[in-house]
Design a protein around this nucleic acid. Sequence first.
DNA 1: CTGAAAGCGCTTACAG
DNA 2: CTGAAAGCGCTTACAG
Lengths: 348, 348
Amino acid sequence: MKSEEIARLAGVSRSTVSRVINNYPNVPEKTRERVMKVIREYNYEPNQSARVLAGKKTNTIGLFLFTIYDINSPYRIYNNGYFSPFVDSFVDIGNSMGDYMLVHTIYKPEECWRIRQTFLQKRIDGGIIISTDKSSELESIFRDVSHPIVIMDYDPSVIEKTMGPEARIAVVDLNDEKGINEAVDYLVSLGHRRIGMIAGRQTSYSGLRRRECFVRRLEHHGLPVDDRYMIKGDFTWEAVVPEIEKLIYSQQLPTAMIASNDLMAMAAIETFKRHSIRVPEDISIIGHDDIPTAAIYKPALTTVRIPFFDVAKKSMDMLSELIENDTPRFTVYKADVGLEVRESCSRI
Amino acid sequence: MKSEEIARLAGVSRSTVSRVINNYPNVPEKTRERVMKVIREYNYEPNQSARVLAGKKTNTIGLFLFTIYDINSPYRIYNNGYFSPFVDSFVDIGNSMGDYMLVHTIYKPEECWRIRQTFLQKRIDGGIIISTDKSSELESIFRDVSHPIVIMDYDPSVIEKTMGPEARIAVVDLNDEKGINEAVDYLVSLGHRRIGMIAGRQTSYSGLRRRECFVRRLEHHGLPVDDRYMIKGDFTWEAVVPEIEKLIYSQQLPTAMIASNDLMAMAAIETFKRHSIRVPEDISIIGHDDIPTAAIYKPALTTVRIPFFDVAKKSMDMLSELIENDTPRFTVYKADVGLEVRESCSRI
DNA sequence: CTGAAAGCGCTTACAG
DNA sequence: CTGAAAGCGCTTACAG
C-alpha cells in the first residue's frame, strides 16, 4: 500500500494525501476526513525511507553507551546499575515523545566510527552519548559531525575546545561537587576524621573529578588526605576487592570511605564482611549513583543519588531543542544530586 | 557527499560506486581500490533511506519489550533484572552482527500498533517481541504482519493458531517443566514436604505454566497441594509483600516456597525477615530467572537459571534465518534452564 | 566489466 | 484549495 493508491481510492492526488499525513492546514476538513478514512481502512503507514529521502526527519534518536566492561565480561553493560536506568529512561522518554530509539553499545574507542556512521547514513536526527573515558576518537566526532549531540560524563571544557564551528552539542553534567561535599560533610558530622576514598578510573571525567572534590572537601574540614586510604578502583567490582584486601592486611583502616560508584561500595562492603569487618559498625561506607539495588542491599547503601529519569528527560529536551534549531551552539546543564542517607554509615 | 560525487571523483559511474559499496564481484580490483580510496578520503557513507527505498534491507532489528510495570511506577522495565540482561544481550548481539537495534517499550496492549507501525513504515527487517501477557492486540499482529518475528514468553500453540498464512514467526520457549521439576526435586531431596508457590500473573504464559508444572510435580511426589501455600503474585515486589504477611499471620507456614521469579522470591525473603522468620533456617526459598542481583543478594538466591545471553543469541539467529528466507514458516525453540543452588534453602 | 536509465515512495515548491 | 512534476540518493536490470 502506497500513497498513490490511497490517493486513487480517496479520489485525490498524492499531494493531498501527503498534506493530510503531515497535518498541513491547507486541506478542508471534508477532504481530510475522506483521505483519513481510506488510510485507516487499509492500515496505511507511509514508507519511512521515502519520507526521509524526500526531506523529513527520521524521528529516530541514537543512544550510544560506552561500556566500562570488556565485551567478554559476564558483567555487561546494562547489568551495571548505572547504565540500565538510563537506557530505561531514555527509551521511555523517547517513545513517549513519539521517537524511535536506536540503542548502541560501544566497547572500545575504536568503535566510535559507528556513531559517525549512524549520523552520516542519516539514520538518526540526533544522538545521546553516555561516555566515560576521554578519547580522541570521540573528540574527532565533535569536530566532524554537525548533527545534534547531547553528551554525558564528559568534561565540558574539553568539548568546547575540540568541537567544530558547526557543532550543536549540549553537555549534561552532574553537580559532583555538591554530592561529594554532602557525603564528606555527613561523615564529618558523624565524627569521622580518617576518611578514605575508593576512586573511579582516573581517565574518566567523573572518576577524576569526584576524587578532586573529595580531596578539596577534606582540606576544607582541615582533615588529612592519607594516601593509604585512597584506593584506586576503576568503577568495577573486580578491581576493588584486591585493593580492599591490601588495605585490610595493612591493618591501617580508615573509619569511613566514600566510593565513586555503588558497585565499588558494595564490593568493598562484601570484602570487609568476608574479613569480619562490619559495615557500618566497624567502618562506614558511602556509595555514589543510587543504583536500583542500593536500597535493597544489606546494609541499605547510603549514597549520592543521581536522578536518572530527570537527567534523561533534561537530556532529551535539550536534544530536541538542538534538533529544532539548526544553528550551532553549545550548552551545559548541571544536574542536581544529593545524599541519600540509609544504613551504611554510623556515628563513630 | 553522495555517490554521484564519489563517482565523479573516482572517474566512474554511480553504478560502479554502488557495486563497490555492495561488494559485488564484477568489478576489477584496481577499480575497486580507486573507488574505495575516494570513499575513505571523504568519509562517505551511503544514505540509508535511499538504499532502503531502492530495495536494500534496513539492517535494523526491532526489540519490543512488554513491561509488567505501570509507566508511572518507579520500578521500571530495565531495572527489572529479567528485562535488562535481555536488552543487554540483544543489543550486543545485534551490534556485533552489524545490525542496528531499535528498542521499544510497550506499556499496554493498546500500544501494540506501534509494532505494526514500525514494520509497515519499513523501519526494521524483523522484530523480537518479549511479551508477558496474552493479548488479542498482539495476536492481530501475528495475523496481519508478514514480517519476521521472534517472540518469547508466549504460548506457541496460541501463535500457531492465530498466525496468518504469510507469517514468519519463531517462538523461543523456556523448558519450564525441567526448571520447576529440578526445583521441587531439590526441595524434596532436602526433606521438604510442605512446599508452597509464589505464582506469577496467571494471565501470563510463564506464570500460568510454572504453576501447572509445580502442581504436577508435587503430585508426582505424592505431596499435597495446599491452597493456603499458593500465593498469588504478579511478578512484582509490591504484590507479594501483603500476601506473604497474610500467610505469616495465618500461622500456617510451609517449610519451603518456589517463586516464579527472583524479585518475588526476594520480596518474600525480606518480608519473612521483617517478621523474624529466617531464610533458609526457618523457611527455604527458591527463585526463578537468576537475575544479576540473585548472586549478590543475602542469602544468595537458589534459583532456576535462564541463560539470558544464549537465549538472546538463539533468538537473533532464528530471526536472521527468517529474514534470509522469505518463505512463511513457524519454528519453536525450547531453551534449557537449570537449578542454580546457592544459600537460600536448607535441609529440614 | 561498465554506464544510462528507470524506479523505489514520498514531499514540496510551483502554477493555477 | 489542489494537482503535475521535479527531486531526494540510492540500486538494479538492461544493453553493450
